[in-house]
Nucleic acid binder design. Structure first.
Length: 919
RNA sequence: GGGUCUUUAGCUCAGUUGGCUAGAGCGCAGCAUUCACAUUGCUGAGGUCAGAGGUUCGAGCCCUCUAAGACCCACCA
């Protein structure tokens, strides 16, 4: 037995993935469909052009586990890859693993601490080797998890962010920038985490609004306001606004710096806001970003008073070595004692924090490597404004441009050992005066090098990970200066909207700088997956949802379908487990659809041949009883078939080849063909515009509400095996990008399919008779009306009690059996004699429910209500037509439609009134 | 301070360039039960589309303002 009564994902998923992977179909060098597609011995690719489709995965942390955001990423990216693979493109989904410089370092440093060590006990090479081993030990989990999610990536091409080719490429770029004069070493204020002892780029800083105190301190007779009294030892001036009358005559004079014996000048600078505090501000160029700039304008001395470990230096002995916090208390106490503390105010201000440990960052004067971003940003802006990259959502393009316009030089030095070493060496042979102080060299494995007799030592810093990550599309596609590479630029960069600036903007700048081309043609940004209540997931809140738990409970497909549901580009959205359950149910539904179709196919082959068609088709021993309606007299079925023209519907060229041609023989068959075609069209349109949720929704409705609930129900009467096979295949293929496992599991279990569905051909359109398809809508209307009315009638089990009568209605007559089957009414008869029972409110059909007079009377209220409702609709339509502007200005087809509707409603309402009178 | 986004059913969300009676899943209520599927079928209730104004023959959709919320950027001592 091939199809169990329910789909159990756990029994299939890992085997299916292993089979895919072993077959090499995820590899881009392999054609995505058989070379000889139609078995005629000729290579079908002859003369065809292969289109490439590439996506590189935003690399998950190599030694971590996937979180739900990765789950979303895979669901989105793999759907695209699988869709375009089915479309016949040569797809390449490059997987990645991130060394996650700072993140991993923080984890490892904690580990070191646990072992009772400090990082300063080891040199950089030792630390690097230790973290490498640590990562190697932990590695692999996330790669298995990607497989569990069904990511159809080319595993042979997995790129680790510390791979040799990555480092090479990063060094090449750095060298080019160095030669182009875009790299400089500067002593600047950087955001520095005293706990992790490293600097950050502006973008890594987390600003939080906090309550603080603004103290007023007297510097002689001038009172300044400050939130950081402990830095006064680093003050080298007082600034006042040049327009400020209060201080005009003091400019150029000096004041005494409290607690010291220094005099500092009073300078005029726009930075001082006369409205704020006392209008005078102390200037500490070494410990404040604004003051640094003021200092540059006025050539002020920079006195560093806080060391990298967060303790005081270069201060009077009394304060030396204290932490900033201790020092602040002591300074305030001393000032108070001397009567210099003039006041304090509670204020709210924004404070920079380490995004990892939350420590308050210290602006620190440090020599670092900077990238002059002016040119990079300018070029990127030009290409963006020219619209070379399409953004989903669209508004993010503008947001990136604005970001790039205000971008400041980029600090790429990090004082952590886990990362790509900066390939710069400092001269230590002082007498070699003609040689530059710094040289570029790739030999970063050496702590010291010699060149032309001059000795240099290595800079111990590593690159900001975003510097190397910005090369991701280049390194993952193996782009080189020499070769044509159809996979670069990428078709799309899919990633989180939260790293739009840190990553996407930098990839654009770097891609253009290195290759001269934008690195991707489109960008799809997804929002955050929030918890069920719309809150951000975080470990501390304990509301983190593990995608692997969901995969284990509901299956990979269910997870993918569930997480895509209702999600749109760039939007944060709450995660709903119910959507995953709905996905699981769809998988099971599809499974059972296949089970039914297979059983029909098996039965048909038993009828055709005295011997079973194939061993597999008879191995099915599911429900032995035949559907009762199949026992209907064959004659009546045949009559229906004969009453329709013998139309042979050839499939469109390019449609799936797995089954033979079909002939539609009843209007339900034409109808489902039309619905499936519409569905395919919608899915194609949605995929082109990254409307994943809509594509899934359409497939869900088509499979469940149309295929199962109407088409398969009608096929219980007349089985069109060829059409069943082909429509099932079509739906399986169409759903495959979103639910790869269940569709493959079914494909493998069906008796007539070959190969993998993962490499099947995207279906063409089905042929059908549009008039017949439209007529089936009438049947649906009749059936719906019968069902609804039966439910509304008093009593239970009405569908068993009352039959259906019709008068002069060929549609009902021809489809008696079908209507009977779908409504479950016991009988359908032509009306003999005068009308009786309850007439259905169908405008164009004379159909009665054969209910006794008593029931009709009881139904009177409902009928009255119905008349009122139709009356309201009619009023609305009439009002529209009374408006001369509508008749004049609205498109003619709409006006005509309104007129027709009015006629229809009027006919209906007068008929209903007559019915009411008769009761 | 600047910017982006959100507000539609009890919950989570769709609603493509304005066009008829605003949809889905889950939840809820009722009915069904030898059926491929209870991970089921059928039926139903539930919405002043945040509020106010405007444009238009016509607005959930476009414009203005207001309110509530989320996020991003920024040097406010």
């Amino acid at each position: 037995m091939k199809f169990a009564s329910s789909y159990e994902p756990g029994e299939y998923e890992s085997d299916i993935y292993a089979a895919w992977e072993a077959s090499g179909i995820f590899n881009p060098s392999v054609p995505t469909y058989p070379i000889d597609d139609n078995g005629d011995g000729v290579d079908d690719r002859e003369g065809e052009e292969f289109e490439a489709y590439s996506i590189v995965m935003p690399p998950p942390n190599a030694n971590g586990n996937l979180h739900i955001g990765h789950g979303l990423t895979v669901a989105l990216e793999d759907s695209l890859i699988r869709y375009y693979r089915l479309k016949g493109l040569s797809t390449w989904y490059v997987p990645g693993a991130d060394h996650a410089g700072f993140e991993t370092w923080v984890v490892y440093e904690r580990e070191l601490e646990k072992q009772g060590h400090a990082r300063f006990e080891f040199n950089r090479d030792e630390l690097y080797a230790r973290v490498w081993d640590f990562v190697a030990e932990q590695r692999g989990n996330m790669e298995l998890q990607l497989r569990a999610l069904g990511a159809s990536c080319a595993w042979d091409d997995l790129t680790f962010t510390l791979d040799e080719n990555v480092v090479d490429r990063v060094y090449t770029t750095f060298e080019k920038m160095w030669n182009d004069g875009m790299i400089y070493r500067g002593e600047k204020l950087v955001n520095f985490c005293p706990k992790h002892r490293t600097a950050f780029a502006d973008i890594e800083v987390e600003h939080k609004d906090e309550k603080g105190t603004l103290w007023e301190i007297a510097y002689d007779d001038i009172v300044v306001s400050t939130t950081r009294p402990e830095t006064l030892f680093g003050d080298t001036a007082i600034a006042v606004n040049p327009e400020d009358k209060r201080y005009k005559d003091r400019i150029g004079k000096t004041v005494h710096l409290p607690l010291t014996d220094r005099e500092i000048p009073i300078i005029a600078d726009e930075h001082a806001d006369p409205e704020y505090g006392t209008g005078a501000v102390k200037i500490t160029p070494a410990h404040d970003f604004d003051d640094f700039e003021v200092g540059e304008r006025h050539n002020l001395e920079r006195i560093q008073v806080i060391a990298e470990d967060g303790t005081m230096i270069n201060v009077p002995e009394r304060y030396d070595g204290l932490t900033t916090e201790e020092c602040r208390k002591l300074v305030l106490a001393d000032l108070k004692e001397q009567g210099l503390l003039k006041g304090e105010k509670k204020i709210e201000h924004s404070v920079a924090h380490c995004y990892k440990c939350g420590t308050v960052l210290e602006p620190m004067l440090k020599e670092q490597w900077f990238v002059d971003v002016q040119k990079l940003a300018r070029v990127a802006i030009e290409h963006l404004e020219a619209g070379e990259i399409k953004f989903y959502p669209d508004n993010k393009r503008r947001v990136v441009i604005d970001y790039l316009k205000n971008l400041k030089d980029w600090n790429i030095s990090r004082q952590i050992p886990w990362g790509i070493a900066i390939p710069m060496f400092r001269k230590i042979t002082p007498e070699a005066t003609d040689e530059p102080d710094w040289i570029f060299d790739r030999r970063t494995n050496l702590a010291e090098i010699e060149k032309a007799g001059v000795k240099y030592i290595r800079d111990e810093d590593t690159f900001d990970t975003w510097f190397s990550s910005s090369h991701w599309p280049i390194v993952c596609t193996g782009w080189t200066e020499e070769n044509y590479n159809p996979y670069y630029p990428l078709n799309v960069m899919e990633t989180g909207a939260d790293i739009l600036f840190a990553w996407v903007a930098r990839m654009i700048m770097m891609g253009l700088y290195v290759t001269g081309e934008v690195p991707f043609r489109e960008v799809y940004l997804h929002g955050l997956v929030l918890d069920a209540h719309g809150k951000k997931m975080s470990k501390s809140k304990g509301n983190v949802i593990n995608p692997m738990d969901l995969v284990a409970r509901f299956g990979s497909d269910a997870f993918r379908l569930g997480i895509l549901r209702g999600r749109s580009a760039g939007m944060n959205q709450a995660f709903s487990e119910n959507s995953v359950i709905a996905g699981r149910n769809l998988c099971n539904k599809l499974w059972n659809i296949a089970r039914l179709v297979q059983s029909i196919v098996d039965e048909a082959s038993e009828h055709l041949f005295s011997e079973p068609a194939s061993p597999s088709s008879t191995s099915y021993t599911g429900t032995p009883t035949e559907p009762s309606l199949r026992d209907e007299p064959v004659g009546s079925v045949r009559n229906i078939r004969l009453s329709r023209s013998n139309r042979k519907m050839l499939r469109e060229k390019g449609a799936s080849d797995a089954s033979g041609d079909y002939t539609t023989s009843n209007m339900g068959e034409d109808w489902i063909c039309r619905e499936i075609n519409d569905c395919l069209e919608a899915v194609e349109r949605d995929m082109a515009e990254y409307r994943f949720a809509e594509a899934v929704e359409t497939l869900y409705q088509t499979i469940w509400d149309k295929y199962a609930d109407w088409f398969l129900e009608s096929q219980k009467l007349f089985q069109n095996t060829e059409l069943l096979k082909q429509t099932l295949e079509t739906l399986l293929i169409a759903l495959h990008p979103f639910a790869p496992f269940v569709t493959e599991a079914i494909w493998q279990n069906l008796s007539w399919t070959d190969g993998f569905i993962a490499t099947a051909k995207w279906p063409g359109r089905l042929q059908f008779d549009p008039i017949a398809a439209e007529q089936f809508e009438n049947i649906r209307t009749i059936v719906n009306e019968v069902r609804g009315t039966l439910q509304a009638l008093p009593g239970t089990n009405n569908s068993k009690k009352y039959g259906l009568l019709y008068d002069n209605d060929s549609l009902v007559q021809e489809n008696e059996l079908l209507i009977k089957n779908l409504t479950k009414v016991p009988t359908i008869n032509s009306l003999d004699g005068a009308p009786r029972g309850l007439r259905l409110a169908l405008a164009n059909h004379e159909v009665y429910l054969d209910v006794p007079e008593k029931v009709v009377v009881e139904y009177k209220g409902a009928l009255t209500e119905r008349i009122l409702a139709v009356g309201r609709e009619l009023d609305a339509l009439n009002a529209r037509m009374m408006n001369p502007n509508y008749v004049e200005k609205a498109p003619r087809h709409l006006v005509k439609e309104t007129e027709e509707q009015i006629e229809e409603k009027q006919a209906l309402i007068s008929r209903l009134k007559r019915e009411l009178e008769l009761i």
